[in-house]
């Protein structure tokens, strides 16, 4: 599945290795992602999925290997890290909204302070995005006054507010009540239609089947199998993936 044409690759990860102390969290990861591609990463907990996508915006430091995002190679250089982060947005498992700021202020923070937009244009854009995720009327409230699903939709709007080229989703629905999962997934499906590059770590196999162009299965810090959804679910090759699918799909 990997493309040889490097020009269209927006993310190139090669020979990525990461350790937490003695423990090796990522083993020799190689992954190229094309612009506009929608990738779902799944696997059992502790398999390194989150660590992998957190290396893309340098929330995690890695010891070996290369990560190139939109032509910029990740190093310790604070300037480079910031310029990558202004193109890569992230949605977290626990939303991580800023509880001391109103919803609309949560959204406008990045545009105003990182992208030097004026307050009024940032606010206008923020309200449009809130409209899109269906919570325009909650703009002046504070995060703790919203339900989990609403908070995660705000978090997605916040991530979109800086007009990123790449969106990273780190288990966006696993902290939500079952009733609220679909409202968040609906927003993500809408996004997927718009051609933004997305990497989603998720256990929502229905979502993966619906929107993913490629699904990556990880276990114990390495990529075990990657395939298009059809092959991934119906003709898994490795035994590890067969076992995993067996476990999650039988119930």
């Amino acid at each position: 599945m990997t493309t040889e044409n490097n020009n269209t690759n927006i993310i190139e990860i090669s020979n990525l290795n990461k350790w937490y102390g003695e423990f090796q969290a990522l083993k020799n990861i190689n992954l190229n992602i094309k612009e506009g591609e929608i990738i779902v990463v799944c696997g059992p907990s502790g398999s390194g999925k989150s660590t992998l996508i957190r290396c893309v915006n340098f929330l995690e430091k890695f010891q070996e290997g290369e990560v190139v995002v939109d032509g910029i190679q990740l190093t310790d250089d604070a300037q480079k890290i910031r310029s990558i982060r202004s193109e890569v947005s992230m949605v977290f498992q626990h939303f991580n909204l800023f509880p001391h700021l109103s919803i609309v202020d949560n959204l406008t923070l990045g545009p105003i302070w990182v992208h030097n937009e004026t307050k009024s244009e940032a606010r206008e854009k923020a309200l449009k995005l809130l409209d899109r995720v269906g919570i325009r009327d909650q703009a002046e409230k504070y995060p703790n006054q919203l339900s989990g699903g609403q908070q995660q939709r705000v978090a997605i709007a916040r991530a979109l507010c800086t007009s990123p080229k790449i969106m990273l989703f780190d288990e966006p629905t696993s902290a939500l009540d079952p009733e609220m999962i679909s409202e968040v997934l609906d927003v993500m499906v809408e996004l997927a239609k718009e051609g933004i590059t997305m990497i989603c770590v998720t256990h929502e196999m229905g979502f993966a089947r619906k929107v993913a162009q490629r699904i990556i299965f990880m276990d114990e810090g390495q990529i075990i199998e990657e395939n298009d959804p059809e092959t991934f679910f119906h003709h898994p090759e490795s035994d590890r993936l067969k076992l995993f699918l067996d476990q999650i799909l039988t119930h």
Partner: peptide, 18 residues
């Protein structure tokens, strides 16, 4: 302050002072 707050601020691209 939970680490998530630091991570969210980092992910947005704010610098140390901001």
């Amino acid at each position: 302050i939970p680490t998530g707050q630091y991570e969210a601020a980092d992910a947005i691209g704010l610098n140390y002072v901001q």
